[in-house]
Simulated assay, not measured.
Amino acid sequence: MKMAAIATAITTALVSGSALAAEVYNSDGTSLSVGGRAEFRGDFQGTADGNELGGTMDNKSRFRLNLGGETQITNDLKGIAFYEAEQTVNNSGSNDQNPTFKQRYMYAGLATGGNTVSFGKQDAATVQISQMSDTISTHSGIQKTYIEAGDEQINNAINYAGYFMDALSVKASLLASNEANQDGYALSAIYNTPIGLGVGLGYAANDNAGTKQDGKQFLGGLNYRLDGLYLGLTYTQGEGSKKAAGNNDFNSIEFVGQYRFQNNFEVVVGYQKGEIDPDGGSKFSVSDYAELTGIYYFNSAIRAYATYKFNNLKADDGQTFKVDGVTPQDADNSLRLGLRYDF
C-alpha cells in the first residue's frame, strides 16, 4: 500500500466510526459524513457480567450515531473533526424510555501525509494494542480498562498518530487533566510484517491524586491475518487502583480466533482472564471466561449473531463473586442473541 493511500485510510478511520459512513455533504473541499449502528443485544440464561437473570431477557441494545468532518486546507494539510454518541435501552420496565445520549468521542485535529494530531475526547495511544484482541462480542477489551491513561474515550486527550514504512503504526497521547497531579501519557507501536503477522508494544502511566494509586501499564500484542483467518493475543500487566480500591498489581490475557467462510458465516472463539493482586490481600479474578460465537453476514451492513459465554468466576475466588453485590454464588453462563445494522 502506497503512503498516499495509507494517509487517506488513517484520516478516514479517525473521522468515521463506521466503514459504511455515508458522505452527505461535499463542497469546496469540505465534507461531512454520517455513520453509526443500530444493534439489538439480548442476554438469556444469565447476564453478561455473570449475575443471575431474574426474568427472560436482559436487554443490552444500543444505537450509535457519529458525524465526521474533513476540510482541505492546502494540498498536504487537512482539518478533521469527529463526534459520536450512544443511546441504550432503559431496561427497568417494558415501557420505560431512556432519552439520554452518552457522549463517546468528540475531537478535532489536523492531518498531513501519514501524520495526525488531534485534541479532545478520544482513545489513548495504547488502545490500538488492546484492539488486537478486542473482537469478542460481550466483554472483550478489558486490557484498556485498568488505568485512566490507557483507556478509550478519555477527556482532555492530545493525540499523535503516524504511519511509516508502509508497515509501522505509531501513536502517542497526553492526558492533560483539569485536576492537580492527575496527568498521564501513553505510547504504542504496531509493526505489520509482510507475512501477515503484527507485533505491538505499548506503555501508559498516570498520576492519581488523593487515595488512588498511580497507574502504570505495559501492553503487548500479536495478531495474524491470512485470508478469512484472524488470530489476536494481548497481554497486560501493571499497577493501578481504577478497578479495585487500594494498591494493586494486575495482569490480564486475552485471545481471539476468527474464521470467516466464503458463505459469509464466521466463527469466533475467545478467552479472557484478568487478575488483581492487592497489597496485603489475596489475588482474585476480575474476569475469567471463554466464548463461542457464530455470526452470519447478510451483507456488508447487517449481521446476526449468537454468543455463548462460559463464565468461570467462582463464589470463593479471592474476592467473592456476589449476585447483585449481595449473595455469594458462582457466576452464571449467558447466551446472547444479536442483530446489528451498520450505516
Rank of each mutant, 00 (worst) to 15 (best):
Y203N: 02
L77F: 07
G198T: 00
D277S: 14
Y235R: 07
N264C: 00
T307I: 09
D317N: 14
N155V: 01
D76A: 10
F310N: 09
I6D: 09
Q237V: 08
I154Y: 01
V15R: 15
K171C: 01
T12D: 15
S173E: 06
Q45C: 04
D316R: 02
G113K: 10
A290D: 01
E23A: 05
S137Q: 10
E179G: 03
N95S: 15
F265G: 07
G202C: 06
K2V: 08
K216I: 03
Q329H: 11
Y160A: 03
G141W: 03
E239F: 12
A176M: 11
F44K: 06
I154V: 15
K273L: 06
D166Q: 14
Q97L: 13
F218E: 04
N206Y: 11
K309D: 06
N333M: 08
S61I: 05
G198Y: 01
G198L: 05
N223S: 14
T71G: 12
K60H: 11
T320C: 04
E152Y: 08
K243R: 15
A149N: 02
K212C: 03
L67G: 02
N155I: 02
T11S: 12
F101D: 01
A244C: 08
Y230T: 09
S133Q: 08
M1D: 11
G274W: 08
N248W: 12
Q45P: 00
T116P: 01
K273T: 10
G162F: 04
A290Y: 12
E86R: 12
G50R: 02
D227K: 08
D151Y: 07
P99D: 11
Y297S: 13
R340D: 13
E239S: 14
A172R: 07
A7G: 15
Q128N: 07
N98E: 13
R336E: 12
A176F: 01
A157F: 02
I142A: 09
R41C: 06
F82I: 10
S241W: 13
N223P: 10
E39S: 12
P194D: 15
T12N: 13
I302Y: 05
N115E: 07
D58G: 00
S334A: 12
A22F: 00
R37F: 15
Y105T: 05
H139T: 08
N159K: 13
G274C: 07
D214Y: 14
S173W: 10
Y203T: 02
K78S: 12
I147T: 11
I302L: 13
K121A: 03
N178R: 12
S282A: 15
S118I: 01
K273P: 03
Y341I: 14
A7D: 11
N66Y: 01
I158T: 09
G79V: 07
G257P: 05
D342S: 11
N311E: 06
Q87W: 05
F82Y: 15
F250E: 00
N178C: 09
L219F: 01
Y25R: 10
F250W: 00
S92W: 05
A125C: 02
T138P: 02
T8G: 12
E266V: 06
A157I: 11
V117M: 13
G113M: 08
G42V: 08
Y296N: 01
T211M: 00
L67W: 05
K121L: 04
A38Y: 13
T12Q: 11
G202H: 07
